[in-house]
Design a protein around this nucleic acid. Sequence first.
DNA 1: CTGAAAGCGCTTACAG
DNA 2: CTGAAAGCGCTTACAG
Lengths: 332, 332
Amino acid sequence: MKRTSIKDIAKIAGVSVATVSYVLNKKEGSRISDATKKKILEIAEAINYIPNKIARSLKTNKSKLIGLIVADISNDFYSNIARNIEDEAMKFGYTLLIGSSDENPEKFKKLTELFSEQQVDGMIVAPVVDSDGAINKLIKEEYPIVTIDRYLKNVNIPGVMINNSEISEYVCDFLTEKKCNEIIYVGYDTKLPHLQDRQEGFEKCIATKNITAKKLLIGIHNITEDIYQGLDENFSKSKNKTAIYFSSNKLAVAGLSYLNKNNIRVPQDVSVIAFDETEAYKLFPTEIDYVRQPLMEMAKESVKLLDAQINNYVPNGKKVAFSAQLINKNSV
Amino acid sequence: MKRTSIKDIAKIAGVSVATVSYVLNKKEGSRISDATKKKILEIAEAINYIPNKIARSLKTNKSKLIGLIVADISNDFYSNIARNIEDEAMKFGYTLLIGSSDENPEKFKKLTELFSEQQVDGMIVAPVVDSDGAINKLIKEEYPIVTIDRYLKNVNIPGVMINNSEISEYVCDFLTEKKCNEIIYVGYDTKLPHLQDRQEGFEKCIATKNITAKKLLIGIHNITEDIYQGLDENFSKSKNKTAIYFSSNKLAVAGLSYLNKNNIRVPQDVSVIAFDETEAYKLFPTEIDYVRQPLMEMAKESVKLLDAQINNYVPNGKKVAFSAQLINKNSV
DNA sequence: CTGAAAGCGCTTACAG
DNA sequence: CTGAAAGCGCTTACAG
């Protein structure tokens, strides 16, 4: 695998590498005669020249690489985000490095270091619990970085997110308006701020209503088992108008499969609202109401914010909050 | 964002950059005194030195980057592959670049060029129809490349795949043994060899049996609409023992949602076997029988093959075919 | 045990 | 209109 270089072209064309570089980069600043221009282009084509971006990066200090760190790229939610970021990044001329943190701060840190060593121009990250250290280190270096989906308390960097608390409150309000007299919030037992916000929105709503509210907070591992057990203990068909609000797609999938297994009908026996859009909902007997995050817009904004930081770093970037939307189907 | 370099360390330590390079790379060949070693390491730590892999790459001609080209990273199947490849690649010290081709040969080619310019050490690709040109170009350059999931006819490069024809034949046999007297094969109208193999296996089985067989071949776009229409035309409840064999996860999801919408019960009204594992199946009222591909093993093997090519390129690599497995649940 | 030096493939002021 | 030269941050024979 020997690659041809600018030097080869220069030699064949009988010009300097500088000249080759200029025409290959289409710099209009320095006028090169059309004749040499044409000759160089032809030779480049003929010998199948492929520019070495790494050499270019070394000189220009721009790799045109950006790193994306998600919790798990195989999670529907993140793979959709990744796809939208990929498309948008391409438009800006960036190529995407992807890594999964598995909610593990050590792994998260490793990934930031790895990407940093690979000289990515910036990173889009979904920070995990206890990743403040890794993030702050990047900030100290003035490394362009934007958060997506999640955010960190006490850390001021640009990011995109949704109105987690508000949409949860809205969902809860909606359910009470539909005369549900018991609502079970299914969430994670976690310190992730955006998830706490979802819970907080729910609690805010509940505080003003006179209905039964339960919270089922489960660990981030063993989701399925925990949900099965939790619903076994907390849900009974006898109750009249119960609703379950699943605060993530993974929770919803696990919970809905529980309902399936136990022949609990939606919405006859229980109402359901889920979070995030996933193909899986299509296979449930009832079309599920869910909270839709505007992933494409979020992805676009995140790349835009990052590109802005790369071109002109400013500390203490602001967050952009998008409005999630409750999509009404037949599960309430 | 000013980064510290080996030169900074050398200056502070009062040694040459060569010495710094040696201790940082832990080369045991050239003995450096423990004293200077210690000093250098401490300084590196103190000034928060981050090695510039791009500079290293330029010199060593190894970027420790590998590119992964899938049809669409937001597709469950590919995001699972990506995740497994990511984990395995990390073990080998590679970082992953990811791109989606959208079944578009132009985009596929663009991606190979982009990755090539970024100096990836090799690529793992799921080739699309008419990507022979792009692939052959890489082969001519002796670029390490391995295919995954899919393969190309008349192109000899290493790759991992499954026994598509055999497993399809097996699925069909299984259905006839279960006394299904009509089988509808739902597949793509495509030239992708691995999908043609699936169809061929089905046909091979059918040829030996005395049952009704239908093929529903749909375009790669508008999957849902095409399947809805196709099943409307080809499936009727009156038939006694009909089975539908969906040859991909996307087809299965679309088809199962059709069954849901039309209150067609599985397995009472129709038997179903799907391809690939996806979370979505969990939400269907009946547990679906599906063909499981050993993704983790395949991902591992693909990285192993690629790494072997990177370290010692050999033309005409061989394919590794894994055995897919029919997972029996309750849908037949 | 350590250093001077060449060079990887580019870009870019500067000079002519 | 074009070229010589420096330099990006490393690695690595080679010499001492």
